[in-house]
Design a binder for these strands. Sequence first.
DNA 1: CAGCTTCATAGCAAAACGCTATACAAGGGA
DNA 2: TCCCTTGTATAGCGTTTTGCTATGAAGCTG
Lengths: 316, 316
Amino acid sequence: MKLNERHLMQLAAVLDAGGVSEGAAMLGLTQPAVSRSLAMLEARVGEPLFLKGRRPLQATPLGFQLAAQGRTIITASRKASDAVQGFMKGTKGVVRVGGVPFFMDAMISRMIGEFQKLEPEVTVQQSYMNLPEMVAALESNQIDLGIVPIGVLDLGPGFEFTEILPGRNVVACRPDHPLLRNRRLRAHDLTSFPWVAPLPGSPLMSDLQMILMSIGMSDLNIRYSGGSLMSVINFLAETDALAVLPFSVVFAQRRENRVTVLPYEIPQPSRSLGILRRVSGPRSPAAERFAGHVTTAFENLKHIIKRHENAVVWGR
Amino acid sequence: MKLNERHLMQLAAVLDAGGVSEGAAMLGLTQPAVSRSLAMLEARVGEPLFLKGRRPLQATPLGFQLAAQGRTIITASRKASDAVQGFMKGTKGVVRVGGVPFFMDAMISRMIGEFQKLEPEVTVQQSYMNLPEMVAALESNQIDLGIVPIGVLDLGPGFEFTEILPGRNVVACRPDHPLLRNRRLRAHDLTSFPWVAPLPGSPLMSDLQMILMSIGMSDLNIRYSGGSLMSVINFLAETDALAVLPFSVVFAQRRENRVTVLPYEIPQPSRSLGILRRVSGPRSPAAERFAGHVTTAFENLKHIIKRHENAVVWGR
DNA sequence: CAGCTTCATAGCAAAACGCTATACAAGGGA
DNA sequence: TCCCTTGTATAGCGTTTTGCTATGAAGCTG
């Protein structure tokens, strides 16, 4: 007993509107069309759906039951239309963001929060990944965009990269670290403290290598590794350990006052933080909108970050 | 942006089944038909619903969203079909029963309970009414059947009456009523006690008149009226008042031992309790089934009731 | 790269759907 | 009671949709 969904919808409309003509109008149809649909539905069901010979057209209990289903079909159909509308306007749907762990935790998660206030009907699915997996995830369409630091040279074909922040690493430590008392830091000052290693596979890992080399540390004095940003900060706050972090990450923690920056210039990677997207493939307007939000947010933040570094770290 | 509900269902089926061919089979269609529907839906939406060039056919987020709506449409459609099936088998739907208050409270409500155990998916809507309103309610199709005592002559055209119990009234009182100590009751014994009047409009009301006349009581010594069965029984149990009740009603209360029957023969009305239905009009199988249940229940109960009266009331 | 599987397209027939015009039936008022 | 208004059903017709079979194209797999 397969019923025609269209007929069920028309039944619901008729009962809700209180008449065939009204129901037809509600659906943008003419009265005869709906009348016939009802007759066909009734024939299919084999039971009367209306009490015959009654002017304000009264339905039988079965008629009401079927109308209830018709109503949910109408609702579902409307929701589907709304989903498409919302999708195209970018006000509905899902944005799947992958990103490097520290930066996602420090900056992007806050921006996702801001974005939610603007677009409450957009769901954001965050995931953590580094460049290789990110490329794979983008290609297999598992994420809409990635937040990652890359060098311009690394950009493969079919991908588009929007810079949001120049990469700038610093050495982070707790605010009452003994080294902060030194007027002028030398490379060998830094070698006598333990270091925190970032998550394996992270771009910070290679940065760290480079820095340790530049300060003449042959082998790593790694005392802690594998922690997420919150873990690393907790660790730093409790010990005299040092860590290589993007300055923006330290900047994002400025209010908590648990980590600060050692005024010591280190070699900088030739990478920029940015948004990685596929050129082709289906583009979600919600994702575009999110990317726009992140971009402008950093546009506004860029010079504040710069000023903060100059003032707080270098005392300029 | 009105989408075709059928297309949404097919999309859902395809995603759930994991392929166009499988989804088509699930709906009893061929693969090309579904393939075209998907193409049409995609064209209508204007956004890709699938990632092109991927063999295990992966959907975009928007595709998933629309499929979710398609799923609810499929479910609703299935529910509608089930409702029809259940309606025809009498295992689903609504039975609207109207009946005279005392009898509904004493007997029918219990049977509705039994019936629910047999047909848990049938909803019973009970309402209280006497003959005139019952006829109107049946004619305007507000109830499916009525439980009422009527004389054969009272049966109007277009109605059908199924007797379930011969009408038999008794005088009820509490078990330790002083009159029960009398060996042989006379009419004037009954006149010295107050009487309970049934609900106005009830057939019992005229029965009461008849009885009072037969025992030579010119004016009514009514001390209580208007209560439902539970109220009347509570009242009887607390006082020495007498009441005219159908024997079956007292019978139904035998376990509670709060009312009993005065062994005094009173004039009997020429009415029978039964089920009143319309001959024409839509008949709900669930209602038929319920009527059948009530009928057979009383068929089984009839002789028990008779035996009980003989044994307990008349000591035979 | 060959073969298998899976999806897309073509072409056609039947059914469904929509419309306008019109007939019919139920209530309401004179 | 009769007629008029209002609302529903039917007729007839053209267009669109939906289904099918046959066949082509594109990924995946060994």
